[in-house]
């Protein structure tokens, strides 16, 4: 188990190194000179030179890359050109909106999908299964940001149960903040839970036809007992993969949903930075998103090993 974890950890570090290199190459090398790109075509040469010095562009590219990575490892993401504040600080503030939103949505999605998938699998081919499958078919087809707009229309504008957008800040009270994240989280979670429920159902159905399920029935377990004691844990293995993938989609999808609800999260930050050509901020936020995807995949790998003993002994 320890060896397995270390191996996964090593691959995590390698992935991060390569991903950071790709991002660095695209952002700092592709546009030619980032400083003149950021300042636009009308900039004075001396302003550009000043920015070059400030960004550390006058050192060789390899050294610049190492400085950037080295800085990030120590928590220093550089200084935003437009806002003149440390990027690390800006990201940290926005993270407190984006991360809770993604986790909230993931929890909702799992809470909806598991019962729905298990219910449908246990009633395969019966009206209950057909109803769940029909609903998920529709759920998969709905774009989450449009669904978000419809939620606003119904629950904020017409019913006035929720506010149409904005975020009060955690210091104004936990429940108030949670309430303002509820519609965005539902909008993110429902389409994802449709996918997850389908995966859960088909994974369970696969397991139900396995030989060991027949063995369990031959022991005298009822259909339901066999499903819970032997089916579920085995069915969880493919479901975990999807949950891992979904987290990255929820983070990315959250960026779009934040636009619908005017939430001060990473999405707002990144779109403002793109229009302000603030490459330093874009670079760091993208790196952070990619880092979280890779980290979640690492955690999923560890979860695999917890569920499947075959992975633990294999190295």
């Amino acid at each position: 188990m320890l060896r397995y974890s270390l191996k996964r950890l090593a691959s995590l570090v390698i992935s991060l190194a390569i991903a950071s290199l790709v991002i660095f190459l695209v952002i700092e090398v592709a546009p030619g000179d980032p400083a003149s790109y950021m300042l636009g075509i009308n900039a004075q040469p001396e302003t550009v030179a000043a920015l070059r010095a400030e960004l550390g562009l006058d050192v060789p590219k390899a050294e610049r890359y190492l400085n950037w990575v080295g800085g990030m490892v120590q928590g220093d993401f550089g200084t935003s050109y437009t806002y003149r504040t440390p990027v690390g600080q800006m990201i940290a503030d926005r993270m407190w909106v984006s991360l809770p939103l993604a986790l909230y949505a993931l929890t909702l999605s799992t809470l909806i999908a598991f019962p729905a998938g298990i219910y449908a699998a246990a009633r395969r081919g019966k009206p209950g299964d057909m109803a769940v499958m029909g609903a998920t078919q529709l759920g998969v087809a709905v774009p989450n940001f449009w669904f978000a707009m419809m939620l606003v229309l119904v629950f904020a504008i017409n019913l006035r149960w929720f506010s149409a957008g904005g975020f009060p800040g955690w210091d104004k009270g936990f429940w108030l903040s949670m309430k303002s994240l509820t519609l965005p989280a539902i909008a993110l979670a429902l389409p994802q839970s449709a996918i997850l429920a389908r995966v859960m159902r088909s994974s369970l159905l696969d397991i139900l036809s396995e030989d060991f399920m027949r063995t369990a029935r031959a022991k005298g377990l009822s259909r339901r007992q066999a499903l819970w004691r032997h089916g579920l844990r085995n069915a969880l293995i493919p479901v975990l993969t999807i949950i891992g993938l979904q987290f990255s989609f929820l983070l990315a999808g959250g960026i779009i949903i934040e636009q619908v609800f005017f939430l001060p999260g990473l999405g707002r930050l990144i779109f403002q930075s793109i229009s302000a050509r603030d490459l330093i901020v874009v670079e760091s936020v993208v790196m952070l998103l990619v880092f979280s995807v890779i980290l979640v995949n690492f955690l999923v790998d560890l979860a695999y090993a917890a569920v499947d003993p075959r992975l633990r002994s294999r190295t």
């Binding site: 992935s15 695209v26 952002i27 592709a30 993938l245 990315a252 793109i274 050509r277 995807v293 995949n297």
Partner: peptide, 15 residues
């Protein structure tokens, strides 16, 4: 796979 399509789009659009 570590780059969701939105992130790729952000990267490309940024430059």
């Amino acid at each position: 796979f570590a780059f969701p399509s939105l992130v790729i789009a952000i990267l490309i659009t940024a430059v």
